[in-house]
Design a protein around this nucleic acid. Sequence first.
DNA 1: GGTTTTGTTCGTCAAGTGACGATTTTTGGG
DNA 2: CCCAAAAATCGTCACTTGACGAACAAAACC
Lengths: 230, 230
Amino acid sequence: MKARSDKLRGIKPKKRTVTRRLPPEQRRAQILERAYNFFSEYGLTGQTRHLASACGVSQRLLYRYFPNKAALVEAVYTDRFATTFDEAWLNELAVGGGTVRSRLIVFYQRYAEKVLTRRWLRLALYSALADNPFAAPYTDSVMQRILDSVASMSVHGMNLQRPHEGNALRDAAWMLHGAIVLGGIRHHVYGTSDAATWFREIETSVDIFLAALPALLGQQGDAAPSAEPG
Amino acid sequence: MKARSDKLRGIKPKKRTVTRRLPPEQRRAQILERAYNFFSEYGLTGQTRHLASACGVSQRLLYRYFPNKAALVEAVYTDRFATTFDEAWLNELAVGGGTVRSRLIVFYQRYAEKVLTRRWLRLALYSALADNPFAAPYTDSVMQRILDSVASMSVHGMNLQRPHEGNALRDAAWMLHGAIVLGGIRHHVYGTSDAATWFREIETSVDIFLAALPALLGQQGDAAPSAEPG
DNA sequence: GGTTTTGTTCGTCAAGTGACGATTTTTGGG
DNA sequence: CCCAAAAATCGTCACTTGACGAACAAAACC
């Protein structure tokens, strides 16, 4: 209405921004990709207008693909956040070649590089702080399986016996996992550590884990792997 | 203006909410205390109106004590967030009595109980995610000193030699510290672990750290402390 | 080429949101 | 008991922000 009467009155019409048209599936995927980065940087309270601008489309278009902001956020979690883990890594960890030490290091360096990225970690933290229910179930189940794999593979690979009671083994696996995740937080979120330091810490953490395992289980294991990889 | 004419016109005047008057210093302290809890729960984007309501005062009053919201947030960091650590703990860790193991456990359980609280951890994460510059310098300097103390006290207490090069010792201290902090995040932020589990993990983490230390430094230390505290 | 379909934008509303001038009311000193 | 000082609130402004009806224009179809 307004625009039309402006035009009739001779006021120069605002030039409409032109955006390349895309098939719906493609546009939706593009929005989700940008939204993943956007929300991980600015948090779940980031504005839809800013997100739209980051996508190079109008704000209104977001509401053609998602009924509201909450649905868009949820889609980011289910379509992008929860699909980063590669099941093959666990398999390689369990039955792959090489020493226990090298398999653990390869697994965790890959995990750090592909999963514990800046955007993944930040979004995981944002959702935890906001009591967002979408991230927790996924991360929980994946982490449980990682812990199980790491624990049993290490015990088996070092010719130890799995303890019948107590939580020492699980606690140890948690400590290893936790050290690596916190290294990622320091690197990606706090910015107080560089990538090389983080990757070196992964090696040291694996060494500590393996060196402590026999004593922790009260058993005599195979010779501990070299503690001086350099 | 409006209120007065309403009164003249006979419209019932809105009953003014009564709030107990406080001396400025006391009111300011009360606001900061509530704001600490408030921002740690709802994030730094929490609304001033909600905070005021949580304080039981009007929104306008906040602006009598702080020029703007940013100044209020900063005051929370400098006056409440950065004053939790007790220097005496470090001293006790360095020269206190008991075994290396028991001193480490006492120190970290105290640290976990007094510093790594729900509100402290949540606010630390919120500020890190928001690139808030107030928390990082404080946490950095405190953590550096903790790491130094833990490392040298452990090396000395186990009759080991401080290595002249390499980062293995520092990495190990980081791993210990990181495991405990991440336990706190799981407990307070993710809610996937209870307090008892966390405290038991602290013991196990210390055991792992101590068990691995001699091998990690390529030296023969004193007998490792019992790995089965139960 | 005309018509239909639909991807995309414009304009705008209502609720929210930090900030602050004006006003009210408690308090303490004389 | 009165009055000045100041603690606290009310009302409101300007801007933000999620949401959406209506208009527009690029493809697709015949």
